[in-house]
């Protein structure tokens, strides 16, 4: 039983679907948490303290890292298989088939963009927060000389999104995630066998709605912190 998850196409797809579901649930949580940073920076820092270097936050981080690794590993295996199955000789002329989304044909590329963004994101935040706590550092010196506590997430957000290029990079990252999820979210239901002709329009609508909600939640924080530090009227109050 255990091996059909490694040696059968549908088993491998199930792993993709379940790891995808896990990542979607995590990202929903992460997005909700971030939005707090707009409403109340103090509240956000309280969450950061709660999710510091204690056993449950560390266990969560490890499980999450495993989830990403499994999802990425299987994505590579499946995509490589598919590349082989397509054969060496390709069509000279191709046309876009009606009703086929661009995202669905570019999931690996989108995923790799998401992964690269994730790498950068970890250096911006995780490396200055949980990692520092693990190293028992209670102060982090930022490039501009500012000294912050590793649990002061709001200060790190403000520091990171003061720079326009970080804002742009993060927005591109969110857009890639949006595309990935507009296909991924309904696709995971299809893979698990929970879909039919009645439910396709509903699942696709839900996928678009959820992907958009996630995008807006994340983008709002980034844009809010940029604008708040640059617009003269916001800076005044």
């Amino acid at each position: 039983m255990s091996c059909f998850l490694c040696n059968s196409s549908l088993g491998k797809k199930l792993v993709m679907s379940l790891s995808g579901l896990f990542l979607v649930l995590f990202i929903l949580f992460h997005m909700s948490m971030n939005v707090v940073a707009i409403i109340s920076p103090e509240g956000y820092d309280a969450i950061c303290k709660f999710l510091g270097a204690n056993w449950y936050a560390l266990a969560g981080t490890v499980v999450l890292a495993l989830g990403v690794l499994v999802h990425f590993g299987y994505a590579l295996i499946l995509t490589l298989d598919n590349y082989r199955a397509r054969g060496k000789q390709r069509y000279a002329v191709t046309t876009k088939e009606p009703g086929v989304s661009w995202s669905s044909k570019n999931m690996l590329v989108l995923g790799v963009i998401v992964l690269l963004g994730l790498g950068l994101h970890l250096t911006h935040f995780w490396a200055k927060m949980q990692l520092q706590e693990l190293l028992d550092n209670h102060e982090v010196v930022l490039c501009n000389g500012q000294v912050v506590s590793p649990t002061d997430g709001a200060a790190l957000i403000a520091y990171t999104f003061k720079e326009w290029y970080n804002v742009v990079i993060y927005l591109v990252w969110f857009v890639a995630l949006w595309f990935h999820l507009t296909h991924g979210i309904w696709s995971m239901f299809q893979t698990a066998g929970c879909a039919n002709d009645t439910w396709y329009p509903r699942l696709k609508f839900a996928a678009n709605a959820l992907a958009t909600l996630i995008f807006l939640g994340f983008a709002a924080v980034v844009v809010w912190y940029y604008v708040a530090q640059h617009c003269p009227c916001c800076a005044a109050c």
């Binding site: 196409s9 491998k12 499946l78 298989d81 088939e97 086929v100 299809q190 929970c194």
Partner: peptide
Amino acid sequence: GNCTNTGACQAECPKGISIAHIARLN
């Protein structure tokens, strides 16, 4: 290969077979 649910097959199938059958196979 492994299906990634693009739906290109149902668009090109001359018999209009729906990918809902793929969900049932899964």
